[in-house]
Design a protein around this nucleic acid. Structure first.
Length: 713
RNA sequence: GGGCGCGUAGCUCAGUUGGACUAGAGCAUCGGCCUUCUAAGCCGAGGGUCGCAGGUUCGAAUCCUGCCGCGCCUACCA
């Protein structure tokens, strides 16, 4: 609502400047929200900027503009403040009408939840910017072990980006790339293959998978676990997650084989042999590796479903290789001269690509050859196998439809409770959608890989795909690390240097890190304990249904409130908090607003009043002029404008901050105004309409963050 | 060595792309508020040389330069 007015005001200002101030050409029209509501609804410091080029005093220019500017409809007046600020005031009663303040609130069949009626209120129409398919690639967890908090940050950021884009009306395809032929899967497959030498009582992978599955099914059938996707223990007799989760089992297997490589040089060839067997499709290791990877993928999808993250398609690396995506890309790269076969130096025998913008530094003791080698990246190893860079260039080309190949797909686990998702396959199903062919691509990958992402984009450029290179975005974010305190809490041994560090990187190889499902389980246990205290009268199922969205809300908000390039130093104390700047705080505000509305709808006299439109213009004007109430209206109506800022800066944290600010303002309102106790009927009606507006916007912004609004808290 | 990022209250972080007398939140600490639409809340207090030094300009936490400190990357791993 506000966004449309803001845009029309910006257009009016631009036209006015073009017409009257030749010097203003190319000047950006900056509109911001004034620090205090009495200063107006939009402010522009453009006269200061204009003063510089027009060589006249800002205040004089402001007065000229004030006298001559024709305000677009919906705006009431323009005031000058300070040294030359332009402060614009909305036609506030008109905005209230557009926001539905005079419409009937609850005209609906009896028995329905009155809050459902809020969906009928006007909201801004979608305004897509890209006007073409957008691919967002996220999650991308190596399918060899359970997901940890670092993976959660990726998935939550990616999923929220998708939600923001879709809300703006963009056509988005969500891809989750599965590296099922890489070193990490090979390591776990090798561990199973050498389980005799590894010691312990590890069964064959198929058997291990079957036994964890049976353990889970048995516990579920016995009523000890909640249904998919959470599988949370209902009783103390329920098996721990580690006993019935194949990805947990693999977590330990991976840690064991990694340690074995460290301590036993004789074990190291296992890895290369496994990689070779997987690539050649040799049984039994290759089919076992596929079994392991697909089972772990299924576990990851379940984990992500717990926090409302879903995908459209899962392209697997095995198809990138076997369907000759790489072979095609390799031919294209050679043809274009983008890669060359190195004849000498440390990369002799490799196909390499120049690092973009690489400069030969004046190196101290490094030889010239080494310095040159550092400026180039290996795309094909001397043994003829392709590196990540090569595969990713092929994948990126396919995303843009530039490879000339289609990716056949089959339904992944169509018989499971999970939502439908497609997975690449050598032979696809005929009714599979046509994936790829996007105009914009966002790769959600942590900032440690920004170097590689730049090289991939340089690869597109080297092939002459300038537009695709420009429209490839590395949506980067900093890693999740552990505070030393948290690492100690988890029982890890730390060196004195580690203890002094601000944060510690998690190491999957050492089996270190906080597993995603463990964290969620703790959050659910904590929120369930709260719910039991507050809603002792509810049955266990209902209590659980309330506790779930609160736990998920806490987790998603925690991961979203940090801006992307802030390293999250993970600490249980902060992550498990439900107070202050948290998801549950925002949910609580929404629930409180809903409670007022439900109570209003339950009072027969009031409900009848609310079912009719509101016709008291004088009361509406007085309400619009109330300086104590307007800031909340202004803030609540600004959702779309905030969405634009969040998308412009690709910063989901901006949306999280907005959600918190709105909740905070509403909580303040909640304490200052007794809505249902308001004696003046007309004013009570308007306070209720404001409550309805805020409830609607809070639920909407929470949904954008992938957080549900619980029915009660 | 080079590249990228960071340095703001005791702690964890925001800061609308250079703007508005007083740099904002949350946590922690201290003090108040439940007979009222749920206290997962509200109100208040203390706490800051925005790493340091220069520069650019009407105006700098924000831009430029140089230092200091920290993190990540700089593999024929991804």
């Amino acid at each position: 609502m506000i966004l449309q007015l803001e845009n029309s005001l910006r257009d009016a200002l631009r036209r006015h400047l073009e017409l009257h101030y030749a010097a203003a050409a190319g000047l950006e029209i900056v509109l911001e929200t004034p620090p205090r509501a009495e200063l107006g609804d939009f402010a522009s410091p453009l006269c200061f900027e204009l003063a510089r080029v027009a060589r006249r005093a800002p205040r004089v220019l402001a007065q000229e503009i004030q006298a001559a500017l024709e305000l677009p409809p919906g705006l009431d007046r323009l005031e000058i403040a300070g040294a030359g600020y332009l402060n614009f005031f909305l036609d506030r009663p008109a905005l209230l009408r557009r926001l539905g303040f005079t419409a009937a609130l609850f005209a609906q069949p009896p028995g329905a939840d009155p809050l459902d009626a809020l969906a009928a209120f006007p909201s801004a129409p979608p305004r897509p910017r890209y006007k073409a398919k957008v691919i967002v690639e996220h999650t991308n967890i190596n399918p060899n072990k359970a997901a940890h908090i670092g993976h959660l940050r990726n998935a939550v950021l990616g999923d929220t980006l998708v939600r923001l884009l879709r809300r703006r009306g963009e056509q988005v395809e969500v891809q989750n790339y599965i590296d099922n032929t890489g070193v990490q899967v090979a390591d776990v497959a090798a561990a199973f293959a050498h389980r005799g030498a590894l010691g312990g009582d590890l069964p064959a992978p198929g058997q291990a998978l079957e036994s964890t599955r049976n353990a889970r099914r048995g516990a579920f059938a016995a009523g000890e676990l909640t249904p998919w996707p959470h599988f949370v223990p209902r009783r103390d007799s329920a098996p721990p997650r580690a006993a019935c989760s194949f990805d947990y089992l693999c977590w330990d297997v991976y840690a064991r084989i990694s340690q074995r490589y460290q301590s036993d040089p004789d074990a190291r060839p296992w890895r290369a042999a496994a990689l070779h067997a997987i690539e050649a499709g040799e049984p039994p290791l290759a089919p076992e590796a596929h079994l392991i990877a697909d089972a772990v993928v299924a576990a990851h999808l379940t984990t992500m479903a717990r926090i409302n993250v879903a995908y459209d398609v899962l392209p697997r690396e095995s198809e990138i290789l076997h369907l000759n995506f790489w072979a095609r890309a390799f031919a294209l790269l050679r043809q274009a001269g983008a890669i060359r076969l190195e004849a000498s130096g440390k990369n002799a025998g490799c196909w390499v690509m120049e690092r973009p913008g690489a400069r030969i530094a004046a190196a101290g003791d490094a030889s010239l050859e080494d310095v040159a080698a550092e400026a180039s990246k290996v795309v094909v190893r001397s043994d003829g196998t392709v590196t990540y860079i090569g595969k990713d260039i092929a994948y990126q080309l396919w995303k843009f439809g530039l490879l000339g190949l289609e990716l056949p797909c089959r339904r992944f686990r169509p018989d499971s409770a999970a939502p439908a998702v497609w997975m690449s396959a050598v032979e696809g199903e005929p009714d599979a959608p046509r994936f790829g062919h996007a105009a914009w691509v966002f790769n959600v990958i942590d900032s440690r890989q920004s170097d590689l992402q730049e090289i991939v984009i340089a690869g597109l450029r080297a092939l002459g795909h300038e537009a695709a290179a420009r429209q490839s975005r590395h949506f980067s974010y900093a890693m999740v690390a552990l505070t030393p305190r948290c690492a100690l809490e988890l029982g890890y041994q730390l060196s004195p240097e580690d203890l002094a560090r601000p944060h510690l990187e998690v190491s999957g190889r050492k089996g270190q890190g906080v597993k995603a499902d463990d964290l969620l389980d703790r959050l659910i246990a904590d929120s369930l304990a709260e719910v039991r205290q507050r809603h002792a009268g509810l049955g266990p199922e209902e209590q659980f249904a309330l506790a779930l969205p609160i736990a998920v809300g806490a987790l998603r908000y925690f991961l979203l409130k940090f801006t992307r390039n802030t390293v999250i130093a993970f600490d249980f104390k902060d992550a498990l908090s439900f107070e202050g700047e948290t998801g549950p705080y925002v949910q609580y505000a929404a629930v409180r607003a809903g409670n007022i509305l439900r109570k209003a709808a339950a009072e027969p006299g009031l409900a009848a009043e609310l079912a009719a439109p509101f016709d008291r213009p004088a009361a509406l004007d007085a309400f619009a002029a109330d300086a104590g109430l307007w800031p909340l209206v202004r803030l609540a109506a600004g959702l779309e404008a905030q969405l634009e800022i969040a998308l412009e800066s690709l910063e989901p944290a901006h949306m999280a901050k907005y959600a918190f600010a709105l909740a905070q303002n509403f909580n303040n309102f909640y304490h200052r105004f007794a809505v249902l106790g308001e004696p003046d009927a007309a004013r009570r009606r308007l306070l209720l309409m404001l409550t309805a507006l805020v409830r609607r916007q809070l639920a909407a912004v929470l949904a954008l963050l992938g957080i549900e609004t619980p029915r009660a808290m």
